[in-house]
Computed example of a mutant assay.
Amino acid sequence: MAVKNSIADMHAEIIGWRRHLHENPELMFAVHETASFVVERLKEIGVDEITPGIGKTGVVAVIKGRQDSSGRVIGLRADMDALPIYEATGLDYRSKIDGKMHACGHDGHTAMLLGAAKYLSETRNFDGTAVLIFQPAEEGGGGGKEMCDDGMMDRWGIQEVYGLHNTPGIPVGQFAIRSGAILASADEFVITVTGVGGHAAAPHEAVDTTFVAAQIVVSLQSVVARNVNPLHRVVVTVGTFETDSQASNIIAQRVIMKGTVRALDSENRTLVKSRIRTISEDTASAFGATASMEWRNGYPPTINHEIETGYAADAARTVAGDINESVDPIMPAEDFAYMLEERPGAYIFLGNGDSAQCHHPAYDFNDEAIPAGSSWFAELIERRMALGERDLKEQN
């Protein structure tokens, strides 16, 4: 693995940052201590500019290269927030806060970007400007959108933007990427079925919403099986099913179901939304009940831009050798999608090895992946904003 030597030398320091963050997880936009920690490290590193409070609690830092004749500005993003999960790792540096843990590796992402910041600030072997983005609230809060809505892209003149995510199941320090959709959208729906409550011993005098709602759940499985092109990937899942009765001898008046839809393109998002509404309303009507659907738009699909995917892959090959450039897309969602809607860029997977899956209480970010991740961030900046041959000779 061709990680940068100076990044390898600071490996232990970056591990220390990562484990501090792991011990002190914060949720959503309430990442005040995490953001303060990032700011303090950036001050010690000596970046050119630090701006907290972007997208509520995000941090943006700027590092200028030895030259700025290219006028190029590249953004690098890491997420900072944790999850509301009770940790079950038993690690010495496990979470100090019950019910909160870094179960998705954002502690590792933040630490790796800080490592790249230290390297880039010390070397400055590039022609242009690196913008480092430390984002809150990736886990459901849409912090990426908040930072974009706060004018981040225009304020710092960002022209391209890149991010990464650790991935259990891929060998430690290896990379995988694809052009086009790499992660799915994540929309939510709430279906309310209303009938006529009654006594369980007299079902003929009621309209049984439990029965009706069950028919809807079964019928929704036809959306992917019979409405979506079988070459496309879509997920429809009903996650909760709640009646307004807790007794075995009562027919419920109302049932509320909540679910999620995952898709890799906007056409299927629209199709599935329409089919869920029609199936719910018509199935309920057929049995004498009514159904209404509330739809909540979530993160859009994460779509890698073709040319920028090549740039990200080139940097990964320099760091790790052979990489997977046609990895299958996965159906979780990622709010880096909003940044890719505003600027060209790419999102890459970094191997976390044989670990528990993300969002599992036994998950832990693999510290052995740090040199590869930090080196990828730095290599991307140096490759996209390379100094000329004469500049390189002068600096040596």
Rank of each mutant, 00 (worst) to 15 (best):
V3C: 09
K4Y: 10
I15P: 03
G16W: 05
W17P: 15
H20L: 06
E23P: 03
V38L: 08
K43Q: 14
G46P: 14
G58I: 11
I74A: 09
L76E: 09
L76C: 13
D79G: 06
I85C: 04
H106L: 02
A111N: 10
Y119L: 12
L120I: 11
S121F: 10
D127C: 04
T129D: 06
T129Q: 13
Q135A: 12
G151K: 05
Y162Q: 12
G163L: 09
G163A: 14
I170W: 08
P171W: 12
F189L: 05
H204R: 12
H204N: 10
T209P: 11
Q215M: 12
V218W: 07
N227D: 02
V238A: 10
V238N: 12
F241S: 07
Q246I: 11
A247P: 02
R254E: 15
G259S: 07
A263E: 02
S266A: 12
E267I: 00
L271S: 00
S274V: 02
R275L: 05
R275H: 05
R277M: 15
S280M: 07
D282F: 05
G288Q: 02
A291L: 09
N297I: 11
E308M: 08
E308R: 09
Y311C: 10
R317A: 06
T318E: 15
D328R: 07
E334K: 03
A346Q: 07
F349I: 00
A356S: 06
H360R: 06
H360D: 15
N366G: 01
N366K: 03
A369Y: 01
P371K: 04
P371G: 05
G373L: 03
W376Y: 10
E379F: 08
I381R: 13
D391E: 15
